[in-house]
Each structure stands twice: as structure tokens, then as C-alpha cells.
Design a protein around this nucleic acid. Structure first.
Lengths: 213, 213
DNA sequence: TTATAATTACCTGTTAACAGGTATTACAGT
DNA sequence: ACTGTAATACCTGTTAACAGGTAATTATAA
């Protein structure tokens, strides 16, 4: 939108040199963007940041030694001013969600150069941009996919909701006018289906997968 | 980016007619966008949707009778295809976070027409766009704020992490070479400080507040 | 150095969670 | 009419969680 006087300085953190080179070539033609360095993984990136402070980092999510998310967690602590755009081969909602937590933008590797330039401008302008062709937000009201995948019944999903709200078996039974034994049965079935060993794992699973919001 | 053949149909839900009129005027000059109707609040909007199905809704966050967030929750259930862009006077992170949950985009009312058009195009293209000049993501570091607020010790945070990973008291004790009784003491202290009554509430709290990721 | 906080550990109970079953009723799909 | 699944409920245990204390060692900051 508004090209700055001094060019936007960028570091690419990406373990595949081929892709990294492609990005470099693409951005070479953009006057107000300059790639000042490259890193092959998170650790290398953090070392680079000791001497060079870019405006923005194009960060691959999956890298050896230290992945992009971990690196981003560290960077936002040490250099909160630096913008981070994640790039990933996979468009899984769980990944995109993490990117929303720890970065300012996300695009898949399959994106066009135009989209890349667009997202850089957007993020530098102080906004966020998360590409998702299969919209993640509207997939989660009740995560139907997951519920089908794990063959959860309506009642079971209802129970998960209540468990997540911190209700004990007894409280749930009272609320739903059921025997506590029935609630326990449901609970056991949920555990079996989701392959979790206790409430803790159930809650983490449910929250991460938006079965209970 | 890519103007469609048939124009993008839009409904505005906004309780201030002045603002609503301004948007209408602004978009009137954009050929591939068409405002097909207006609503003054969430309830009115939902009624409109019985007869008209827009591609996109420009939704004010704060409206009388039924606010934008509530309306969005309903709409994503009933008409998941419809895109929602929130418009708000306030740039509070709590509001933006909710918008990220229930919509595809967010811009403040102070935005330019260019930004409005840009966000509509972005969202229609299947992406998300959340304007935030004071970046919300980097405001919740690892959540040191919360840890300080609740006066959690290092050890307690460590315990929360392990509890979140589904470890039982015994397992945690073994891992940290502690007595199970010690772990129980820590746990009780955590419960007291965070004012939660059981592990379930602890997990939900920790995940929601990024104390444990 | 001297409080203060952090970490560790223990004691005594009660209650809830969890494991591994069986079994009945009801209803929806073929 | 039949069959599977959902929803309900029970039984028998064991173990973990939780509540309510007390108290001894470290660290650590005033």
C-alpha cells in the first residue's frame, strides 16, 4: 500500500534452499523489500538476530532443530517489534491456529508471488493476514469433522461440553437428570473413542480440536 | 484481486445510519460490490437472512438488541457460507479476539475506504484479515502478565505444564524426583491461586490464558 | 542479615475418577 | 421385520484427586 522510504528488511528462515531461492528471486523485483539474510532453521535464525534486526521474518513452520513456532515464541519475547509471517506446506487448521498465536501472518507455500508481496505489505502496515482456503473459523462451531471421525454421539459431545465447564460427574448427572453411573459410562466411552487416559487429556484434546469451545 | 462476474452481495448491519450511509456511498463506486440491504441490529439482520442470502455481511460489533458477535455465532451455524467482516469503533484486543473467533475479518471504523474494499476482497477470496494497529498477538507473551498477576512461582508454572500434558501426580513426582505429596502441595497452591476447583478448570484456564501452550 | 518467599514434605480423611465389565430400552435405517 | 447404535443404568474394585491442615529446609531479596 504505502511503500516506505527505507526498504523493508527481511530474513527468510527456511530449510529448503530451493524454496528460499525462489522467494529471493521473486522479491528481488520488488524495490522496497530487501532480503538481508537467510537461516536454515530456528536456531540459526536466533543467532542471526543477535547481529541483524530485520523488520520482518518469513518463517517456515516446519524446520529441523528448532521449528518456526518455537522460534517465533522466542522472538516475540526478545524482539517484539519484528513481524513474523509463517509459510507452510500444510494448511492444517491446527498449524494455522498456532500461527495466529505467535505470528502476524500465514500463507501456504503454494501461494503466488503477488500474495506474498501483499501479505508482507499488510503485516508491515500493522495488520494481520492469515490465508486459509478452507476457512478454519467456520469449521469449528462444532467440529463436525472430528465428531464424525471419532464417532462421537450427540450426547457424548454434550457431556464433553459440560466436563470442559468443570462439572463433576455428579453435577452433570444432576443437571441432565441422569444417573451418575450413566454419566460415567458416557465418560468411559468418550475416553475410549478419543484415546485419552484422563480428563486432562480430554480437555486438551477438546479445546485444541474445538469440540468444546 | 479477482473481481467476480456477478457482483459481491453485501448486507450492512449497523445501528448508526450515518456510518451505514457512508459505507454505502463509498462502495457505490465499486462496480463488483453491491449492498443489497441494511439492518439496524442483530435481530433484524437474522430476519433479513430468511429471505436474502448475501455473500458477505459488514457487521458492527456493538448494536442494540443483539450485538454483532451474537449474530455472527448464529449465522455461522445457520449459513456457514456467508462471510462476516466486523467493524468496530473500539480496537480492544478482547473484541478483536472474539472477532477472530466468529468472523473472517475485522477493521476499525476509522479505516479508509481503500482498506474496506481491500478487506472485502480478501475475505471473499477465502482469506482472513484482522486489522490491529496495536498488535494483539504480541501483547500476550508467554503470559508473564498472568503469571505475575496470580503470583505463580516458576515451579508452579512448570507443574501446570506437566499437568496439562496429562501427567498424574505420581508421574510428575517421578519425573521431577519429588514426593507425590510435594506435587500435591504445589497443586493445591495452584488451585488456590487460580481459584479453580479441579484439574479441568485448571486446564481450561491455562490454555485460555496461554500459561501452558 | 534478616525476613520473606519458594520448595520441599508430611498427615488424615473424603470423594471422585477410572477400569472393566454387563444389560435393558428405544429408535432409526435397511 | 430386523439390526445396529444410542442412551440409559448397574456392579466391583482400585487409584487418584481433593480438602484441610502443619512444617522443615533452602533461596533470595530488602
Amino acid at each position: 500500500m504505502t511503500p516506505t522510504e527505507t526498504p523493508i528488511s527481511i530474513i527468510i528462515a527456511e530449510d529448503h534452499p530451493t524454496f528460499s531461492f525462489g522467494v529471493e528471486q521473486s522479491l528481488a523485483r520488488v524495490p522496497h523489500m530487501r532480503i538481508i539474510d537467510k537461516a536454515l532453521n530456528g536456531k540459526q535464525l536466533l543467532q542471526l538476530l543477535n547481529t541483524k534486526k530485520p523488520d520482518l521474518i518469513l518463517m517456515d513452520v516446519l524446520m529441523p532443530h528448532m521449528n518456526g513456532i518455537e522460534a517465533a515464541m522466542q522472538i516475540r519475547k526478545d524482539f517484539p517489534v519484528i513481524k513474523i509471517i509463517f509459510i507452510s506446506m500444510y494448511e492444517e487448521s491446527s498449524i494455522i491456529k498456532q500461527c495466529m498465536q505467535y505470528g502476524h501472518g500465514y500463507i501456504p507455500k503454494a501461494s503466488t508471488t503477488d500474495e506474498l508481496i501483499s501479505v508482507i505489505n499488510t503485516v508491515i502496515a500493522g495488520n494481520t493476514y492469515f490465508h486459509n482456503s478452507k476457512p478454519l473459523l467456520f469449521k469449528q462451531p462444532y467440529n463436525d469433522d472430528l465428531i464424525k471421525k471419532y464417532k462421537l454421539t450427540r450426547r457424548e459431545v454434550e457431556l464433553i461440553q459440560l466436563i470442559k465447564d468443570g462439572l463433576t460427574t455428579k453435577e452433570i448427572a444432576a443437571k441432565l437428570f441422569l444417573s451418575t453411573l450413566t454419566v460415567e459410562t458416557h465418560r468411559k466411552n468418550i475416553f475410549r473413542k478419543l484415546e485419552v487416559k484422563n480428563i486432562t487429556e480430554l480437555i486438551v484434546f477438546a479445546l485444541n480440536n474445538q469440540i468444546a469451545s
